[in-house]
Amino acid sequence: MKTCITKLNTISLKKERLIIGLMSGTSLDGLDIALCRLKNSGSATQAEIIDFETIPYSLSFKNEIKKICFKQQIDLEKLCLLNDEIGKLHGNLIKQFLISRNIDATTIDLIASHGQTVFHSPKRLRKADDYGNATLQIGDADQIATITGIITLADFRQKNIANGYEGAPLAIYGDYLLFNSNEENRVLLNIGGIANFTLLLKDQSFENVLSTDTGAGNTLMDQYVAQNFENLPYDKNAEIAFKGKADENLLNSLLNHPFFGASLPKTTGPELFNLAYLNQASQNSGSLGLSHHDILATLNRFTACGIASAVKKANCPNESVVYLSGGGAHNPLLTVNLKNLLPNLTFKNLSVLGINPDAKEALLFAILANETIAGNQSVFGKKSLSMGKISLPH
C-alpha cells in the first residue's frame, strides 16, 4: 500500500503524465482506448493523443450487456457478474492494446475508466419518489488495475452527483481546459448515443459555462437499424436515411416530451429514448405504416431538432463555430439537417483543433484523472477538481 501511495505522489509531481482514457458509451459497440500525454494541469493543461483504437465487443458479449442496460427491471445477479466481467475485459483489452504497440505497461502512469453506463436517472424525470439524481457505471476498476498493474481511476460521475448535479455531462471540464478561446465563440458538440454540447463564449469564466445533453444522438437510429436490418449495427453514412423522407407527424410526436421544454442544463439517456419511445410516438401520430427508410430519415431529423432546440435555448451567438465529435460527426445527413436548422452557425470537425473526434470522450476522462491527481488550481471555482475513485494494483 505505502509503495503505491508513494508512486501516486510521484506521478502527481511529474511535469507530464501518460494516461490511458477509456470510454464505452450507450451505443455498447466496444471500448475506446486513448493513450494520452498530459502536461501540467488546470489552465496550463496540454493534451496530446498519442494513439487511439476502438476495440469492438463481440456480438455475444454485447447481447449480454444489453440484458442489464437501461432497463428498470433486470437480473441482479447478472449485474454483479457483468460488473466483474467488464472490468476483466477492459483490463485485458488494455494489455492487448499495449502489447500490439510494444509499449511497456510500467511506462503508463494512470488509467482513467469511464465504465459502462447501465442506468442514468436524473430526478427531473422521476415523479413518484423522493430520491435524488442517480447514475450507475459498472466495470470493476480493481480488476483493471490488477490485470494491467496500472493505478486506475474510475466512477467519475458519482462526485458530480454528490455535489448536487446530475452526473452528466462531464465534458464541461475538459472542454473548458482544452478548447476555451479568446477569439471565437465555440460549441463543442458530441453526438454519441446521446448528444451533448458545451457552449464556450469568448473570455468566459468557468462558472458561466453551459454544458448539457440535448436528447437522442445515435441511440434511436442505431437501435432501429439493429432491430430491422440484419447484420447492420448502424446506418453507415446515412445510406438508409438518405433514401427516405422525414415524416412531420411522427417527428412532432417524437418531440412532444417534457424533456425538450425543460430548462438547461439537463441530462437524459436510452432509458427514455428507446424503441418503446419510438413505438409510442408512432401510435400517437398514426405513423405505424411508414417505411424503414422514412422512419430513419425522421429519427435523423429528430436528433438534429433536439440539438438545434437546445442550442437556440442556450442563446448561442450567431457566427459561433460548432466543432463536431462522436459517431454522429460521420453522419452526413445529420450534418445537413443541423446546418439547415442552425444556418447562422459554422460547422467544423473537431480534428481541425488537433483532436481526433472519435477519441475525444476517452481523452476527457484522462483529463479528469489528471486533474484529480495533479490539479492544484481553482480553475473550476473555489476548489480544485477531484473526481474518480482510485484502485491500486496491489
Rank of each mutant, 00 (worst) to 15 (best):
N356A: 01
G269L: 10
K382G: 10
T335E: 08
P332M: 13
N349F: 06
I295M: 07
N300C: 14
K313Q: 15
L341H: 02
K312C: 02
K383V: 06
L333C: 08
L333Y: 13
S320D: 07
A314Y: 09
N279V: 04
N349I: 08
L288E: 15
L296C: 03
V379A: 02
L296D: 00
S386Y: 14
N279E: 09
P265D: 02
I355Y: 15
S285M: 09
T303S: 15
H330A: 03
L338E: 00
G354P: 14
N279T: 11
D294G: 01
A304F: 12
V379P: 11
A366H: 03
E271Q: 12
L299M: 12
L275W: 11
L264K: 00
L364R: 02
N331F: 12
V321Y: 07
I295H: 08
Y323M: 03
A262H: 13
N356I: 02
L338Q: 02
S263N: 04
E371Q: 13
L350S: 05
N300A: 10
A276E: 13
P270V: 06
F365G: 05
L278D: 03
V322Y: 15
N279C: 02
L272P: 05
K360L: 14
Q280Y: 14
A297R: 06
L368Q: 00
T298K: 03
N279H: 14
L288T: 15
N340S: 12
N376T: 05
P343V: 01
I307G: 00
T372P: 08
N356G: 04
N376G: 12
A359H: 01
S378V: 14
N315T: 02
L324I: 03
I367L: 11
A314E: 10
N344D: 15
T268Y: 07
T372H: 15
F273A: 03
L264P: 00
L353E: 08
I295S: 01
H292E: 11
N284F: 13
E319H: 15
V336Q: 10
H292K: 14
L350T: 04
L324K: 03
K266H: 04
S386R: 14
A366Y: 00
D294H: 09
V322G: 00
L290D: 06
G375K: 06
L296I: 08
D294K: 11
V336N: 03
S384I: 05
Y277R: 06
Q377N: 13
A310S: 14
S320T: 11
C305I: 04
V322A: 01
G354N: 09
D294N: 15
P265R: 05
L341K: 01
H292N: 14
